[in-house]
Amino acid sequence: MRSLVQQSATLTLNAILMAIFCVVLMTIDHRNDALKGARSTVASFLVYPIQYVVSAPANILHWSRDNLSSRNTLLETISDLHKQNLQLMAQQQQLLSLQQENARLRELLHASSRVGEEILVAEVLTVDQDYYKQQIVINKGEVNNVLLGQPVIDAMGVMGQVIELNQYSASVLLISDPSHALPVQNNRNGIRSIVQGKGDPGELDLLHIPNNADIKVGDLLITSGLGGRFPPNYPVATITDVEIRPGQPFARVIAKPAAALEISREVLLVWPGKEVKP
């Protein structure tokens, strides 16, 4: 134990040194990937247990809801799922023939086609991230062959991409984060644009849309695949507001994400398919 006088003599110096060290650490972490390894090691072995314990009550809740529901509810769910399955299978038949037709046509045009996207279901850990970051943590990691930068979708549309890969978990940056931009195209007429987050899970910004562009409320935006990171033709957002600003070079266009960014408990990881050259 040190005396009061001894401690206060070195206190200020220690604090300044520590603060400088923290600033250096932040700068390195922001500018390059040198600390990624250390970060993911600590995240895998020290932070993941805490996250697991914190998400345990929610897991128990879901488990008990699955196991304690009555026979009637289960029968109802099964019959609902059965109907849904029939519908989806009917649509799938069409899809298969359309895919084959598409491949044939592409072959005629000597264009390359993408086949065989692989999908894995992951669960969202019920832990909160920093309030000013739009991120989620999922329960699949390096051991499940998840890749850095891998696209993540839910049943309705694109959610985001993996930005931090740990042993048993991964952090996903949502498309609503201000630092996330995603190349999209309008499903109605093919106009290309970029969707950027605003830090609000219900709103996205559409960048660089000229005032005279043909864009309407209700248009569906799909991924264009131009960035090379997201596979093409997944729904991203629906236009909710178009404000023409004659005094400005670009219109203000707001869209609502198709995916349930805040609510989804189960997400899908997509492995983009290989390009097949004819």
Binding site: C22, I28, D29, V47, K133, Q135, E164
Partner: peptide, 12 residues
Amino acid sequence: IATGTLLGQHAL
């Protein structure tokens, strides 16, 4: 690391 902020932000 738990909240996904920059390494050193909360430490500072």
